[in-house]
Design a protein around this nucleic acid. Structure first.
Length: 401
RNA sequence: GGGGAGAUUCCAGAGUGGCCAAAUGGGACGGACUGUAACUCCGUUAGCGUAAGCUUUCGAAGGUUCGAAUCCUUCUCUCCCCA
């Protein structure tokens, strides 16, 4: 059936394999929609294309009329979260959680229809859980099971610390599924263990176990690690169009297919065309441009995508220095005492976030250009006249006015 | 509760009294080459000083010493083994 195929597209793991078909059938017979859960840790409040992979799948469910539930792990975040980390994350305050959750929700609207989604906070029930209830819950799970989870196992064998509370996290996440009576839990493949825990717990509560659907983890800009804020390899959903374009262009070629499948919203037919272009030897750069434009169209607009492409071509592919786009800087704002300023001091005014030592290294390493000339003398006096153009590093261009 | 090992710069990991702002590798950043790709090569990788040099940094706080990442004391944290 068409629906099934669409829903299964790109999904890496479905447990059990034919579970989705059964659930859909069951829902149809009962004349109801499925409850699809996706959990979020309100930690770093920036969503990126990696999150979007799962969110898009949620959107599909939504488009097919199912009820999606965004679960904010407000409780778990306040006790610290081990997901995908070798180190435990530090607990967040309630205020931070609240703030991050709000940021999340506004970003979620870039992919899903938030007005039709149900947004719940797990502190709603976990706060009220008594010690005896908690311990009863814990009795359903064995230590050996928990130690099967990859990162626990790894940390345990490597003798890196695992705090007790981290072990509870998957169990609490599973309990969320019990409370919400989920039909499906979505997540990245790194969530497989936690999602499976939900199945197990639902069974002990005599509920129909949820289907687990894991989406592949999108790799980050480095082409090695999964996309993650802390690895500084993300394309954020709120990134500026020009930034999205540049970042997309910088992904390694071997990621092109992955991005095509997971990050674009091309139809299967369109994807096939792109793949053929690639295999017939077309310059991968052009394929990346198409992908970049598609991504920007999703999160900004078609116009922004075109603009970003033009900007990229002019700013980085065009070798002519004078034709770049320069950020205007008023000479008065430099607060110079004289009509000239040593290059290093000028650079520091323009890039306040860099230390003087770092700038000095950059200049002496040939990373600064003044009016189309590479200047490697930090103390060369630069006349402060309108029209002076300065390039600092690869992508910062300024013009004095 | 007892015994042992350990905490080093972004990360990993050398360094056991001056030659240490601290080897090496990774990452990152710059340069050359390119398609802001990859590969390769080169350089840089605490702050301030146009320099001499100064300041902060080797888990934390004290101490010994002309001089400490290195020695001593206390503390915090981690790992291992035993009970």
């Amino acid at each position: 059936m068409e629906t099934i195929n669409r829903l299964k597209e790109n999904v890496e793991i479905i447990l059990p394999q034919d579970g989705l078909e059964q659930k859909l059938e069951q829902a149809k017979n009962e004349n109801r929609s499925l409850v699809i859960k996706l959990g979020f840790d309100p930690t770093a409040p920036d969503l990126h294309l990696g999150h979007a992979v799962v969110l898009k799948k949620m959107k599909q469910f939504q488009d097919f009329g199912h009820q999606i539930v965004i679960l904010v792990g407000s409780f778990t975040a306040t006790i610290g979260d081990p997901t995908g980390k070798n180190k435990s994350r530090k607990p967040l305050s309630i205020e931070e959680v609240q703030h991050n959750a709000e940021t999340y929700i506004s970003q979620l609207s870039k992919v899903i229809d938030v007005s039709k989604a149900k947004i719940v906070f797990n502190s709603e029930w976990l706060d009220k859980l008594s010690s005896s209830e908690l311990i009863q819950l814990l009795s359903k799970v064995t230590v050996a099971q928990l130690m099967h989870r990859n990162d626990f196992n790894k940390r345990f064998t490597e003798n890196t610390p695992i705090s007790m509370h981290e072990l509870l996290y998957p169990i609490l996440q599973g309990f969320d599924s019990v409370k919400l009576n989920c039909d499906v839990e979505m997540g990245g493949t790194d969530q497989l263990f936690n999602c499976t825990m939900g199945r197990q717990l639902q069974e002990t509560f005599n509920l129909s176990p949820q289907i687990v659907m894991c989406m592949p983890l999108l790799k980050g800009l480095d082409g090695k690690e999964k996309m993650s804020k802390s690895l500084n390899n993300i394309i954020g959903l709120t990134d500026e169009p020009t930034e999205m374009f540049g970042k997309t262009m910088s992904i390694p070629d071997n990621l092109i297919l992955e991005y095509l499948d997971l990050a674009t919203d091309f139809s299967p037919e369109e994807k096939q065309v792109v793949k053929e272009r690639l295999s017939t030897g077309e310059n991968p750069m052009d394929i990346k441009k198409a992908i970049a434009k598609n991504i920007i169209s999703q999160y900004h607009s078609k116009e922004d995508a075109d603009k970003a492409e033009r900007f990229f071509q002019n700013q980085f592919q065009n070798k002519k220095f004078d034709e770049k786009a320069f950020t205007p800087v008023a000479i008065e704002s430099l607060e110079a005492q004289n009509t000239a300023l040593a290059l290093i001091n000028l650079c520091q005014k323009l890039k306040a976030d860099m230390t003087k030592s770092a700038l000095k290294r950059l200049i002496e390493g040939g990373g600064v250009q003044v009016n189309n000339d590479k200047v490697m003398d930090s103390f060369l006096d630069i006349e402060l006249v309108a029209g002076t153009k300065i390039r600092i590093g690869k992508r910062d261009f300024y013009e004095l006015l």
